[in-house]
């Protein structure tokens, strides 16, 4: 009389094998357009990047002569410095977004249901506003004879305009500004699902607010922190437009260098390819690292 029930849950979607084959074929047919498209316009281009990184640059194009010069140059101290700058910027942006975004996400998540949506819209409007316009608005705000300086002089805080535009500070400021919503939204979606009575339980058991935060809220929002950090860090690593429009040409970031090598004459496409692949390599390492970390934190929570 003893029988196992291991297949019971699949009861609903069990179909005969022939039908299963037919469905599989249908799935291939349905996904084929996107699949073919992505192979041609996503996978193959990367192959070309790899090929180009081993070629010789020409003023306007490439020469099909094998060479390792691109990699040799990419690893000289100047470019390693650029890479370091990019990483520093990305890390700083991520950390600042997290520090600034967490209380905001928490505040929205704990608001009443009706206010919640309104507050979210306030976060989302800048998110949907054109990137270049948001950057541009900061140029107006921070300019030497811009609004901020005007205001500060009028209040009497300063007598000479501050030079904020075209500094690293301006770059950081605008980076945080642009990427903040990417951090707040995933944090919010995790915090929103969190059971806040857990905090009361923790306090009931003797934890103060700070302990409750570090022992309950933070571990439970790990998923959102990972997702948000990923959404901020990765684009920040390849940022071009923000440093280009509000930064100076003394501190160059990877995105800028890659773009110059492609757009400016003399062109150096092998170099751009090599730098792109370096960036890709670091992103890949980072992703693997982050996912291992994430998996570990998750499995620890379960056990």
């Amino acid at each position: 009389m003893s029988k196992t029930y291991k297949h019971f849950q699949s009861e609903r979607d069990v179909i005969s094998q022939a039908a299963e084959k037919r469905r599989n074929l249908a799935s291939w047919a349905l996904t084929a357009p996107a699949l073919i498209w992505l192979i041609i316009f996503f996978l193959i281009p990367y192959l070309i990047v790899v090929i180009y990184s081993f070629l010789t640059p020409d003023i306007y194009d490439v020469k099909f002569e094998l060479s390792l010069d691109a990699y040799r140059q990419a690893f000289n101290p100047d470019y390693l410095m650029t890479l370091f700058q990019s990483f520093r910027l990305a890390i700083l942006t991520t950390v600042l977004c997290l520090l600034l975004g967490f209380p905001v996400a928490y505040f929205i998540a704990r608001a009443k249901d009706k206010t919640k949506n309104t507050l979210l819209v306030f976060i989302i409007i800048p998110f949907w506003t054109n990137l270049i316009i948001r950057i541009f608005s900061w140029r107006i705000f921070l300019a030497y004879n811009g609004v901020l300086n005007d205001m500060l002089i009028n209040i009497g805080l300063i007598s000479q305009p501050l030079e904020i535009m075209r500094t690293d500070l301006a770059v950081i400021l605008v980076m945080v500004y642009v990427y903040l919503p990417y951090m707040i939204l995933p944090l919010y979606s995790v915090l929103e699902k969190m059971d806040f009575t857990l905090l009361h339980a923790a306090m009931d058991l003797g934890a103060n607010e700070i302990k409750a935060f570090f022992r309950i809220t933070l571990p439970l929002s790990m998923e959102g922190i990972f997702a948000g950090s990923l959404l901020v860090f990765i684009p920040a690593l390849g940022a071009y437009l923000i440093p280009q429009l509000v930064g100076n040409q003394k501190t160059l970031y990877l995105g800028q260098v890659i773009t110059y090598k492609i757009k400016n004459i003399p062109r150096n496409w092998p170099m751009a390819s090599a730098l792109s692949l370096t960036l890709l390599f670091f992103v890949a390492i980072l992703l693997v690292l982050l996912f291992t970390l994430y998996k570990r934190s998750k499995s620890r929570r379960i056990t």
Binding site: F41, F42, I44, P45, Y46, I48, V49, Y52, L230, I234, P235, L237, G238, Y240, G255, I258, T259, I262, W269, A272, S273, S276, L279, L280, V283, L287
Partner: peptide
């Protein structure tokens, strides 16, 4: 989604 935009730009430019 997890690769910086600029890389898609570069790779398509080269394509």
């Amino acid at each position: 989604l997890v690769i910086p935009d600029i890389l898609m730009g570069v790779s398509l430019a080269l394509l």
